[in-house]
Computed example of a mutant assay.
Amino acid sequence: MEFTLGQLAALLQGSVEGDETQKVSRLDKIQEGKAGGISFLANEKYEPFIYQTESTAVIVSEGFKPSKPVKTNLIRVKDAYLGFTALLEAYSQFAKASYVGVEEPSFMHESSKMGENGYRGAFSYIGKNCRIGNGVKIHPQAYLGDNVTVGDHTIIHAGVKICSDTKIGNNCEIHEGAVIGSDGFGFAPQPDGSYKAIPQIGNVVIEDFVSIGANTTIDCATMGSTLIKKGAKIDNQVQIAHNVTVGENTVIASQAGISGSTEIGKNCVIAGKAGLVGHIKIADNTTIGANTGISKSIKTPGTTLFGYMGMELKNFLKSYSIFKNLEDLEKRLKELEKKA
């Protein structure tokens, strides 16, 4: 895809400082820019690169004032970072639009239906009684079990496994290798010390505008639904157990684990490797730091927790100022005991 600088400036509601007829077809880092590429400058520590880059154009903020002559063309926008983000979004949409039609071999059961302008990649599989909306992209080797529902303009990347009865909303994106709707971890202890599997007969419901990262697993409910609400963003390699609810616009980072039947509020942030026990509730706007363990419900909205056992942040910082000096305090205590 090739665009003139004038076309891009119009798209970004900016202006060209230079030759607006020149064309670009590639997005480049400013420090690696070559002819035909477009870059951006939003962080002042990268400013030296704008004087040496070979990119055909660089997106800069309106207020940027170069300290010496610039060889490249400039596209001035209100905010360079937001402008380049808008360009990435447009580029991504163009790329996605190129996937249309059916590649062979692929399989869709005769009882299933798919809307217009969709894409089915090679070796994809769609089971019985599935209902798939308009503009849905199902990439190679993706699997959809029976009775799956997928809303309009959702993207299912290569190798995704979506188990039977899962419901997915509009404008979602599920990245490579994710498994949605596999059995929850339910086993009943037996008198002889063994365990018997408890049938997991529920499903997973994913609302609109949800993003799910690569190799993330979301288990089906024992009964009812595991629920991922509108706008939630889930990173790679996250484990969400059966009957969990993740609230609207909540963000969960890589390697976090959410145990069964826990309810997470809206607009929460759960950092990497955080672990939550089951059957608790997390209030809206809660922030849970990396490696933090949460063993009880968080009832106050807006709470920030940090530390292995999830202490309130201010208390953790006060305690940390003490226990980081424990070795020195122990030595001083022993010296005092000798003098006593």
Rank of each mutant, 00 (worst) to 15 (best):
M1K: 12
Q7P: 00
A10D: 15
L11G: 07
L11A: 10
Q22T: 05
S25H: 15
R26S: 14
L27T: 05
G33F: 10
A35V: 13
G37F: 09
F40Q: 04
K45C: 03
Y51L: 00
E54G: 11
A57R: 12
S61Q: 02
E62T: 12
K68S: 09
K68Y: 05
P69M: 11
T72A: 03
R76S: 00
R76K: 14
R76A: 06
K78G: 09
L88I: 02
S92C: 01
Q93M: 13
F94K: 15
Y99R: 13
V100W: 14
E104R: 12
S106A: 13
S112Y: 06
M114I: 10
M114G: 01
A122D: 05
Y125R: 08
Y125S: 12
I126N: 04
G127M: 11
C130F: 10
G133T: 08
I138F: 09
H139E: 10
Q141V: 11
A142L: 04
H153N: 15
H153E: 11
G159D: 06
K161W: 14
G169N: 10
V179A: 14
G181W: 12
S182A: 14
D183F: 03
F187H: 14
P191C: 01
A197S: 15
I206M: 11
D208L: 01
S211A: 10
T222N: 07
T226P: 00
K230A: 08
K230V: 03
G231K: 12
A232S: 13
D235I: 02
N243R: 07
N243E: 04
V244Q: 09
T250M: 00
I252W: 11
G260M: 04
T262M: 03
E263K: 15
I270A: 00
L276T: 03
V277S: 11
G278Q: 07
N285V: 02
I288S: 01
N291E: 14
M309Y: 15
L313G: 10
F316W: 15
S319W: 10
Y320D: 14
I322T: 14
L326F: 13
D328Y: 09
L329D: 10
R332Y: 05
L333I: 12
E337F: 01
